[in-house]
Design a protein around this nucleic acid. Structure first.
Lengths: 714, 714
DNA sequence: ATGTTGGCCAAGTGCCGACAA
DNA sequence: TTGTCGGCACTTGGCCAACAT
């Protein structure tokens, strides 16, 4: 998890990595998660007013928020004031003068505020969040309202080539059983294919569903509120038993209770629904449906992975995905804000709406085949030959890779992707940014020579009857002036482009527009929203340092080394000894807060955590959740996930202080870079917070493609 | 050609497109170019001082510069002052108060200057250029000193995947005979494989060389000055007659006169040298060496291409490549500033130094094969199978595509690229930017499972005896702590990374460091520099509008429609009638200036142009050069190419006013985007300035790879 | 010839309570 | 309770010539 150094926009880096033979024999199964979301309560979030961002004045702090989050003022002073020091995602410190004055009295941040506003380029409508964490640190995050923050630099590769290359890279990774890393920007480009691992595990392994079972599912309404819809499970079966046998993707056929059910999709995934009768099954939980290879073992505290799953990471991140979790058909593999790299998202978003799991695989297969044969109109014999020559390595991995390719091959054949003729593809004259906006509509490099005509990608899906072939027109042709290209997908693409360019981050608007655009024939793919009760929680906050910094009247004096690799166990006791309940400003509101390093402690020492939890009034539940109490959602403030995107910004273990330091400047000492690289998390997987963070998420793509090759998140 | 909206950094978008059958029969041969560079003389360039950029004061204009470039002041005023309006690359207008005051008197820009400084984020050391073009417009460009201007946004794809994808995209384009578009940033990542088409055409088609002929060649010295070296042509033969028969790349074996000849490479390309006896051969020029398919016809005013080659584009751009034309082994296919997308450059730059033409092909072949077989340790039988199945299209293009693949296959076999084992490849924990910096050292996705060991890429080249195998170590392993990986290539990579990150734009420093780093065994690849006499000229400036805007005391009133596609012929006469010699501010200094649209006029009406040229004092030569006079290099100012990067920012014909307008914001009207796209240059190739601009350059890669597939620049 | 500095005035920044929503 | 405004210091911006190099 990272945060853009320039805009503080959060994004995640995720790597799929093939399992080693041992890992294949000893499959990974994460520990139980209990309830999912653990969030800090000591925070407040405010959307900035014109006065807040004006150069004329300071920041008006809502009274309740100030009293809840900020250290108490010494009212013996006249006027009462103090200096607040808050850290942002990059560990930069910001100092503010906090004063209580005026008539009537109010809390204000004066000196220092304007510097922050200008540095973060905040304008009215943007939001800030102040969090008082359990380390007695004041954390500070921002959320830009909606302008495309990231400016598109000069493009590197044409979108055409980028797409081909992207798919080829994925296909290559699948074929060679090698790792594949992407960057995921949940704010700018949410994807329903990336779901929290905890959510997945809980639903797949710790929840028993059966035909006839009642469930509820949360949907986003146009007013950005949440509405529950009820339904009954009618069937549990593969979406496509041929192409993706034993996939959990939309394996649950459901019947909806209400009259609006017609708009809802008939198939949902396990993790989307909330069974009204659940069977928590620890300590020995049998997955409902066994799935190779994860299903070959009991869920146990696997040594290698124990402690690597960070609930708080999940919780924090899940709130980041608030926007993206909406089932609006955003199935982009990767990309980021529209201003940054809009290669993939709208393309895959719009025209292929509804072709959720298979789309990528299909495209990858197509790309692979095109690269291979040099002819989009494939020949199955060539595919077979290709397959036969692709597993010279032998061994288990190769077998799985072979399996992947078989799947891809089949997929390619099934999809009967045909490249007909291609019309004008003219974009050499547009500046890079705009061009990217358009070229994202291209799926394949147009074959030469240029001629009138269209490259039509036809995708046949046996279980999905949406009429999407017309929508796929636009995939391959960007020229709207061409006859016959005015298909529905164009408006869809435009919608997404528009929405992204406008920086619209209002989930209701996303959905709203989505409904408006697709209500006629595609709306059934849009109405499925994941449960949002957990998502309406603020994101957590990482502390890259272990220091417990005395602040205000806190007596704790514990200080940890800041720039060293810390022995977690030894520091554990230290930490436990010093962070006593009274060290918290308000013992009733202290929560085990989602600092990654801290959570390594937490998950390593339940005894301590139990004591911590017991000393608090937080709502804890389950084994791990005792250590990391659930969020008590107050409802006082806007859910930060809705107004603010802050997330963890993980560096190496104490090596990096901030992204700024790393990205900022002058690597005149190249040794530094090499060193940094050497300290990568893979060197010591069991202790790196990064690997833990990465592990906390499942690229659901892996459920459909990568898992067949025994990939896992490193 | 574009300019980054944020940093004004120039870059070019280049597309290789397969030739249509007709184009193959009727090969493209550009019109003769005469001498190459035509530059405006009415410009001045100044590196900003601390006072210039301080908020305290304005901009001190050197007296000679102000008198030469700015409109003359009315000295009857006290003090003499006027308002200057200058346009930047994005057609934004900047207003300055130009005053002549102080004791002693000096020219100053006061009001408006600080706004410009802050908007462009100029600091001391940056440079500005003011150009007075022949449309009586004041043009204004900036050149940031050296900081990495483009901030790396959140990465999109991992560098591993990016690399694979990039190569696969190229291979795919070759295989499918489809277009391939890249973005080229000559400032941040120069490439010796991208040379001006005019330069290429002139040397290949219009210059007769023979064995024994004397020539001179310009080299950059460490002090950034130019030195001529003399030599004699000893042999003219293919560099590798098997892999690239009839390639002009380094086809000339030479003997150097001086004692330092040992450091110079024994082979040069035609366009690098300057024969002391040339034979200009128009109107019917026979290329020295016939080359399919371009060589099958006489150089004639081919209707379709007539007027599409813009000399000024070439000239303008060639100066941009001042930095990159240095033969320092920078053979990156594409990428941009280090802060933006440092994926490819250092990787291809450093370790593969000296493997100029074949490197990319080789890598592409390797990537293609890896994708295909899923096993880096290839089997030739698989390759042959691959090849046999890859031409199902039939037809000429497929034949050529087949040819490309044959070449690639051969190349892959020749290179005997072996993937052994791979060690730790750990980078999942680093923030995107830094990570990219390191991952660029990776060439292939590391195969799984992680193990101790190295992936070694061995490349054997028959004609190049540099010991580079050790240097290639680092291609596949970024972990410097690994034993055996401390090879020379690391320091090379570090050098380039460092240089780029420092924003070093001093060509002498580039070369200087280059010599220092590679002098021992690789310096022979570094000392070959292209002729720089033409390059030491300022870049030209585009005018995206056809309007001749009256300014100052000019009487010309001609106004062209701004937002319409213009009939060039009809407007031609209009233009010719109004732009009389006296319309220029200073007739002696007026030059046919590099506005693309204007040059379409120019190349379409020599009669008019002759008149124009005749009315001026510019140094004209040849047919076209009469219309577009050569630059008279004054030597008064620093060559802007050295201190300033400005280039054309072409929109559609009068459709776009600025990149800002396009990239800025809110595409609430998606129709706008579609419309923009529809007006792409490919729709009307013969009239689009963009296609002309693109056409002005030959990606020399195409000489070795793409041209075999009958690609051309669209 | 031109880079830097101090003087000077104007404009903007920023803290304050008043006032109103 | 809190957003905005006028008042009022104080800082900064910015134009000028003097001075230095």
């Amino acid at each position: 998890m990272h945060a853009d150094a320039e805009t503080d926009e959060v994004y995640a880096q995720m790597t799929l990595q093939p399992l080693s033979p041992e890992e294949q024999k000893e499959p990974f199964l994460p520990i139980e998660l209990g309830a999912a979301s653990k969030q800090p309560t000591n925070y407040f979030c405010k959307t900035l007013t014109a006065s807040d961002t004006s150069t004329h004045g300071g920041f008006s702090v809502p009274r309740r928020s100030a009293e809840k989050v900020f250290p108490p003022l010494d009212f013996s002073l006249q006027p009462p004031c103090q200096e607040l020091i808050a850290k942002d995602l990059h560990d930069n410190e910001w100092k503010f003068r906090h004063i209580f004055r005026g008539q009537p009295k109010r809390h204000l941040l004066t000196t220092g505020w304007s510097v922050f506003v200008s540095a973060k380029r905040l304008v009215a409508g943007d939001s800030v969040i102040f969090i008082w964490n359990d380390n007695n640190q004041l954390l500070l995050g921002i959320r830009h309202a909606n302008r495309p923050q990231t400016i598109m630099p000069s493009s590197v590769l044409s979108s055409d080539s980028m797409h081909i290359g992207l798919l080829a890279a994925a296909a290559h990774a699948a074929a060679t059983n090698s790792r594949f890393t992407i960057f995921y920007n949940p704010r700018a480009s949410p994807s329903e294919f990336i779901i929290p691992l905890a959510k997945y595990v809980k639903s797949v392994y710790h929840t028993r569903v059966s035909v006839g079972m009642r469930f509820r599912m949360l949907f986003e309404t146009e007013e950005s509120s949440v509405r529950r819809y009820m339904g009954t499970i009618t069937t549990i079966s593969d979406l496509d038993s041929v192409r993706w046998p034993n996939s959990h993707w939309r394996s649950v056929k459901v019947g909806w209770d209400e009259s609006t059910a017609g708009e809802k999709q008939p198939r949902v995934s396990l993790w989307e629904i909330e069974p009204l009768t659940t069977f928590p099954m620890y300590p020995t939980a049998f997955p409902l449906r066994l799935k190779r290879p994860w299903a070959s073992g009991l869920p146990s505290m696997h040594g290698m992975f124990n402690g690597r799953l960070k609930n708080d990471d999940f919780a924090r991140y899940s709130s980041l995905m608030w926007l993206g979790d909406g089932d609006r058909g955003a199935q982009s593999l990767n990309f980021q804000g529209v201003g940054a790299s809009p290669w993939l998202q709208p393309r895959m978003d719009s025209p292929l709406l509804g072709l959720k799991p298979d789309t990528y695989q299909q495209m990858a297969a197509a790309a692979l085949e095109e690269i291979r044969t040099g002819d989009p109109s494939k020949q199955s014999s060539a595919l077979l030959q290709f397959q036969q020559t692709q597993n010279p390595n032998g061994g288990l991995n190769s077998v799985y890779a072979n399996h992947v390719l078989q799947q891809m091959q089949y997929q390619a054949q099934q999809s009967s992707l045909q490249t007909v003729q291609h019309g004008h593809s003219q974009y050499s004259g547009n500046p890079g940014f705009l061009q990217s906006q358009f070229q994202q509509l291209h799926l394949h490099n147009p074959p030469a020579p240029p001629q009138q005509g269209h490259q039509v990608i036809q995708q046949s899906h046996q279980e999905m009857q949406q009429q999407l072939s017309s929508g796929c027109h636009r995939i391959s042709d960007v020229d709207s002036s061409m006859p016959g290209s005015e298909s529905a997908s164009q408006s869809q693409s435009s919608f997404y482009q528009q929405n992204l360019l406008e920086g619209n981050n209002d989930p209701s608007l996303h959905l709203h527009n989505g409904f408006r655009n697709f209500s006629s024939q595609d709306s059934s793919n849009l109405v499925s929203l994941p449960r949002t009760d957990q998502l309406m929680a603020p994101e957590g906050w990482p502390s890259k340092r272990l220091a417990v910094e005395p602040l205000g009247h806190i007596e704790s004096r514990s200080v940890q080394p800041k720039h060293e690799n810390v022995n977690h166990q030894s520091n554990m006791s230290h930490f436990a000894g010093t962070l006593a309940p009274q060290s918290a400003r308000d013992s009733s509101s202290v929560q085990a807060y989602g600092a990654n390093v801290d959570n390594q402690f937490l998950s390593s020492s339940f005894a301590f955590q139990d004591g911590m939890a017991g000393a608090r009034g937080g709502s804890s539940s389950g084994t791990v959740s005792m250590a990391i109490p659930l969020l008590r959602y107050s409802g006082e403030d806007l859910p930060p996930a809705d107004t603010l995107a802050t997330s963890s910004c993980l560096g190496e273990s104490g090596t990096f202080n901030s992204l700024d330091n790393m990205c900022g400047v002058n690597p005149s000492q190249d040794g530094t870079f090499v060193k940094v690289c050497n300290q990568g998390p893979l060197e010591d997987r069991s202790t790196s917070p990064d690997s833990a963070a990465t592990m906390s998420y499942v690229v659901s793509w892996s459920i459909y493609l990568a898992s067949k090759a025994n990939w896992r998140t490193p």
